[in-house]
């Protein structure tokens, strides 16, 4: 540990080293971005042209967004599925978290154990029956089905339960003495107190849903319902060797999350750290 009053050369040296290493993590993204601006014939020139000779930004992105595989549609699908999943998941999770931590009923303990047990079930072990179930109740190949699959993650319940346990029981008790029911207490006292935690969970849930590949792959079939990840994959196999276009699609798929992350960086990192440390 160094007390930093003036520039410390050792610290500077480590910074330079870490900077060099960080290039390893960023370079693929830079390559992706640069390639998306290029003329197809210049993609694989070596040494790599980090500044394109011919700029094709407008043409490439126009093709991706409004061509045969119109990305604006998949954007809309992803936004719809992402927001709906996040909303439902936050709602259901915070209700359950409150119920498991602040309402004192005997069965609660056992019910919580059941929920806890499901956390151990790897999602993929249930895919086949879920698929069969969806085929039979008409949720297959629909956004609603996809949204429901993502909405009942017990992780949110755990995370928010931790926070509700931090809310003093006296708040709840005194509100009750004043004649408020649990729903009113939840809405007026409990929820506002854990709002920051809900926001963190919401960002995480949105990122996970946005990046999900497996569930859309299994539960969607029609092109027009595809989410961005799935469309990206189909686009790649359709456009074959057109790497400039594929990279334009990749940039389009990553950019919104990058923005969400940069804006909500603190909550994302804190949320992950918290989930991580607390287990």
């Amino acid at each position: 540990m160094v007390t930093q009053t003036k520039f410390d050369w050792r610290r500077g040296l480590v910074t330079v080293f870490m900077f060099a290493l960080s290039i390893l993590f960023l370079l693929p993204f830079v390559w992706m971005l640069v390639t998306s601006f290029k003329l197809e014939t210049e993609v694989f020139t070596y040494p790599i042209q980090w500044i394109p000779k011919h700029w094709r930004i407008v043409e490439n992105y126009k093709e991706v967004w409004f061509g045969d595989y119109p990305f604006y549609r998949y954007y809309w699908n992803s936004i719809k599925v992402g927001l709906a999943t996040t909303l439902i998941s936050c709602f259901v999770s915070s209700l359950a978290a409150y119920g498991f931590s602040k309402v004192q009923f005997k069965a609660g303990k056992y019910l919580f154990m059941i929920v806890l047990a499901t956390y151990m079930v790897p999602g993929q072990a249930t895919l086949v029956p879920q698929f069969i179930l969806y085929r039979n109740i008409g949720l297959f190949d629909s956004h609603i089905g996809l949204i429901l699959i993502g909405s009942f993650s017990v992780l949110g319940t755990f995370m928010l339960r931790q926070f509700f346990m931090g809310v003093h029981q006296e708040f709840i008790e005194s509100a009750k003495i004043d004649g408020a029911g649990h729903f009113r207490i939840f809405w007026r006292i409990g929820f506002p107190l854990v709002k920051p935690a809900v926001a963190t969970y919401a960002i995480l849930r949105f990122i996970w849903t946005w990046n999900d590949y497996q569930n859309p792959l299994i539960f969607l079939r029609s092109d027009k319902l595809f989410t961005l990840t799935l469309a990206m994959q189909k686009f790649t196999s359709m456009s074959g060797e057109f790497y400039s276009l594929i990279m334009a699609a990749a940039v389009s798929a990553i950019l919104p999350l990058f923005i969400v992350f940069v804006i909500g960086q603190k909550s994302v990192i804190e949320g992950i750290a918290l989930g991580g440390v607390k287990g």
């Binding site: 693929p28 993204f29 390559w31 992706m32 990122i207 946005w210 990046n211 590949y213 961005l228 990840t229 799935l230 990206m232 994959q233 790649t236 594929i246 990279m247 699609a249 990749a250 940039v251 798929a253 990553i254 999350l257 990058f258 992350f261 994302v268």
Partner: peptide, 11 residues
């Protein structure tokens, strides 16, 4: 935070 498909394609 990057979309796995995009990352995989780049690699």
């Amino acid at each position: 935070i990057s979309n796995i498909v995009a990352v995989a394609v780049v690699w």
